[in-house]
């Protein structure tokens, strides 16, 4: 699959963002690139989805932003999870694993 599966991505974008910024502060471009890279170009995040999602997460208090210098030396906003964001991530991952496991089971055994 070359093009992004928009329907699949829609419900999981926030989870992916939380996961990617868990280990390291990242900016928006980097997050988009990381998703593309990890999915081997399967998932391409549209900017129309990414930035609203980042702002929603910040609104919910799951992530926080801070300004810093990018690799090019330009000032850019970095995102990292908050405590409640980290807890939320744990919960979402657990739920996802359980959910995807059930789906896999049905596909295999059904």
């Amino acid at each position: 699959m070359k093009k992004s599966n928009a329907e699949l991505l829609h419900g999981t974008l926030e989870l992916l963002i939380l996961r990617l910024i868990r280990s390291k502060k990242r900016h928006g471009y980097e997050i988009a690139k990381q998703i593309q890279a990890f999915s081997k170009d399967t998932l391409v995040v549209g900017q129309g989805s990414l930035y609203p999602a980042l702002h929603r997460l910040e609104h919910k208090g799951l992530i926080q932003s801070s300004w810093g210098k990018s690799e090019t030396g330009r000032r850019v906003k970095f995102y990292e999870p908050t405590e409640s964001g980290a807890a939320q991530l744990k919960e979402e991952v657990s739920y996802w694993e359980e959910f995807s496991g059930i789906i896999n089971l049905i596909i295999r055994e059904g």
Partner: peptide, 13 residues
Amino acid sequence: EMDGEMRFHIEML
């Protein structure tokens, strides 16, 4: 801020 952020994204692209 949003403008700066998005222009950076375009620049990186």
